[in-house]
C-alpha cells in the first residue's frame, strides 16, 4: 500500500469506525434480532421465522404496507414536481426571488416535532386555517369547490391526504439541489433553443428536463429511500396512525409502536427488515426504469459499464 492510500485510509478511519459501530453493527444486530423474541430485558429467545410469519397475518402491518406504498407512490412524484417547478420559477434573478427561495427552504428547517404540532393546528377541522381558507367563498358550510370541508383527522382518505400535504412543504433540500443544477446548465443550450425559435414548453421538454435528468434521477431514488421513514413524525404527532383502525398507520409507526410501546423488539426488527426489503424493491424498480429510459436515449444519463 503506497503512502497516498495509507493517508487516505487514515483520514477515512474516524468515519469508517463510526459507520461500522453506529450503523453497520446495529443493522446486523437488528437483522439477527428479527429471528428472536426479545424485550431487551429478559433473555432473547430464538424463534426462527415466527416473526415473519406473524407479519403476514398482522392486520396493522398489512394496512401499513398498503399505506406506505401508496404514500410513496403519491408523495415522491408530487414532491419532485413541486421542487422542480419552484426551482425553475425561482432560478432567475428577480425581485423577491431570494426571499421566495428562503421561504421554500424554511419549513425543512423547523424541527420535525414542532412541524407536526403546527400542522395539528393547521389541519384542525374547525379552527384550522386550512379549512378556514377552503371555506372562503363557499356557502352553507361548503368549500369554494362546493364540497364539504375535508375532515383531516377523522376521515381515512382525508387523513392520508393530510399526511401527503404535510410532506409537500419539506422539499427544501430537493429544491436547492435542482436550483443549483439548473444554474449550472450552460446558457448556450438555452440560446441555441432561442435561436431556433423554441417556445417555453419546448425548452422545458427538450432542453431543461433532459439536461436535469441525471440529477432528477438521483433525487427520485433518494426521496424514495427516505419516504418510508418520512411519514413517521406526522403520523405520530398529528394522526396517531388513525382514524382507527389503521388509516394512517405506516410501517415506521408500526415499528415504533411494536418496539417502544409493546416492547416487542424482535418483531419490530422484522418490521424493519420488511421496510428495508420494500425500499430496496422500490429503488430497484426505479433503477431499472431509469436504465431503460437512459439507454433509449431520452435523457442525458449515460449507462456505462466497466471497461467501456
Amino acid at each position: 500500500m503506497d503512502r497516498d492510500r495509507r493517508q487516505l485510509l487514515l483520514m477515512l478511519l474516524p468515519y469508517l469506525v463510526g459507520l461500522v459501530a453506529l450503523v453497520l453493527l446495529p443493522a446486523v444486530a437488528t437483522m439477527a434480532m428479527a429471528f428472536t423474541e426479545s424485550d431487551l430485558i429478559a433473555t432473547s429467545r430464538f424463534v426462527g421465522l415466527a416473526n415473519f410469519v406473524e407479519l403476514t397475518r398482522d392486520p396493522a402491518v398489512r394496512a401499513a404496507v398498503g399505506n406506505s406504498l401508496s404514500y410513496l407512490a403519491v408523495s415522491v412524484p408530487l414532491r419532485l414536481v413541486l421542487a422542480v417547478g419552484l426551482a425553475l420559477l425561482l432560478h432567475r434573478r428577480a425581485r423577491a426571488a431570494g426571499t421566495a427561495r428562503v421561504a421554500v427552504l424554511l419549513p425543512g428547517a423547523v424541527p420535525e416535532l414542532a412541524y407536526g404540532l403546527m400542522w395539528l393546528w393547521l389541519l384542525n377541522p374547525i379552527q384550522g386555517p386550512v379549512n378556514q381558507l377552503l371555506l372562503l367563498g363557499g356557502e352553507g358550510g361548503r368549500t369554494m369547490f362546493g364540497t364539504l370541508p375535508p375532515q383531516w383527522l377523522t376521515d381515512p382518505e382525508d387523513a392520508r391526504a393530510g399526511i401527503v400535504l404535510m410532506s409537500l412543504f419539506t422539499i427544501g433540500e430537493t429544491f436547492v439541489i435542482v436550483l443549483t443544477a439548473r444554474l449550472a446548465l450552460p446558457p448556450e443550450a438555452y440560446e441555441l433553443a432561442e435561436l431556433e425559435g423554441a417556445r417555453a414548453g419546448q425548452v422545458l421538454r427538450r432542453v431543461t428536463l433532459p439536461l436535469l435528468a441525471p440529477v432528477l434521477a438521483v433525487l427520485v431514488l433518494r426521496d424514495t429511500l427516505m419516504s418510508l421513514q418520512a411519514s413517521f413524525v406526522p403520523t405520530l404527532v398529528v394522526t396517531g396512525g388513525g382514524p382507527p383502525p389503521y388509516a394512517t398507520t405506516y410501517l415506521s409507526l408500526v415499528l415504533y409502536q411494536d418496539a417502544f410501546e409493546y416492547l416487542r423488539y424482535g418483531y419490530a426488527a422484522a418490521v424493519a427488515a420488511l421496510m428495508l426489503g420494500l425500499t430496496a424493491v422500490a429503488v430497484l424498480i426505479q433503477w431499472r426504469l431509469l436504465r431503460r429510459w437512459a439507454s433509449s436515449g431520452a435523457v442525458g444519463v449515460e449507462v456505462r459499464r466497466p471497461g467501456n
Partner: peptide, 27 residues
Amino acid sequence: VSMVFQNHSLLPHLTVADNIAFGDRIR
C-alpha cells in the same frame, strides 16, 4: 440566423443526428 459557440454548441443528451435535427424538430 444560426450560431456556433466556443463551447456547449451541442446538447449532451441528444445524438449527433438529433442535435443537427433539433431546430427542424422545434419548428
